[in-house]
Computed example of a mutant assay.
Amino acid sequence: MEQQIDEEEDDELRVYAEAKKKIARLRREKELQAHQEKQEVRDHMIGYLGSLQKRAEADNDTQIFRARAQKEAKDLRDEQEKLEKQQKMRESITKHRFETMKRHEAEREMEEREDAEMRRKKAESDRLFLLYQQEKEKQRIQDAQVTAEFHLKQAQERKDRQRDLKASEMDEIQMDRHMNEVEKQQYQDYTGRVISYMEENGRNTYPMKRVVTDEIKRFDQLNHAYKKTDTPINGNGEKKPGSQDKKTLDETKKHLGFQWDIPNK
């Protein structure tokens, strides 16, 4: 009986132990399930919070990205405008340099054309001046030749005139000499008759004889001058000796202070 009781107690203990084990297993399972549920809830909350955080971070990143994109777009536009301005400035500088070079090239070509035209005109002017100088020298030589011929002709004509004048003056000298002798003879005849008439009438003849003596000396001096030279004393057109001193018989009568009609003896 005791064995049966022991067996029954063992069975109860076994059932209790198994029930305890089962309860412990169920408790562990519940705890594990509760822990798992808590973990799932925690994971869900963490996931939800993570998603919220990610969304917040995404929104923040979007704002930052948008702001950054706007800033980058603005910087890009500013850089593009800056590049466009620089490009326009470079193009303007290049255009200005090209136009300046083109203008300088045109000015240089114009200066070269003007220099060439000036050299051509100068060469033409020099050629014309040389021709003018040659013609001038030719004309000068011709004028000098004509002048020399004219002077030679004048000299020859002057020699001819002097020769003719010399011959004419020689003839005139001979004629003057002859006329001087004739006038001297006429003067002597006239004064001789006058002095004889004055002596016959009782007048003083001394002053008249002195005048007659001086006049005879003058006639002799003229004759001596005519004999002394066979050519004119001056060949420059000056008067010959005695041309101013020669007097006719009537002038001699006036020189004596009277003019009488003396009868010829």
Rank of each mutant, 00 (worst) to 15 (best):
Q186D: 14
I173E: 04
N201H: 14
D160L: 05
M198F: 03
M170H: 10
I173K: 07
N201T: 12
E199H: 02
T191F: 00
N201E: 11
V182R: 01
T147S: 14
I173Q: 04
S196E: 13
D164T: 03
G192W: 03
S168M: 09
R161N: 10
R163M: 11
T147M: 13
D171H: 11
Y197K: 04
L152Q: 09
R177E: 07
K153Y: 11
Q174V: 11
Q185M: 02
I195W: 04
R161A: 10
M198V: 00
K153C: 07
F150Y: 12
D160G: 02
D143W: 07
E157N: 04
L152A: 10
E149T: 05
Q186N: 14
G192S: 05
V194G: 01
Q162Y: 02
Y190S: 09
A148V: 08
K153N: 13
S196V: 07
D171V: 12
R161V: 09
A167D: 11
L165Q: 01
Y187K: 01
D164P: 00
V146P: 04
E157V: 00
R163K: 11
Q188A: 08
M175L: 15
E169F: 08
D189H: 04
M179E: 11
D143F: 05
K159E: 12
V194N: 01
S196T: 13
H151M: 05
Q156N: 12
E183C: 03
E157I: 00
R158W: 08
T147Q: 14
Q142Y: 06
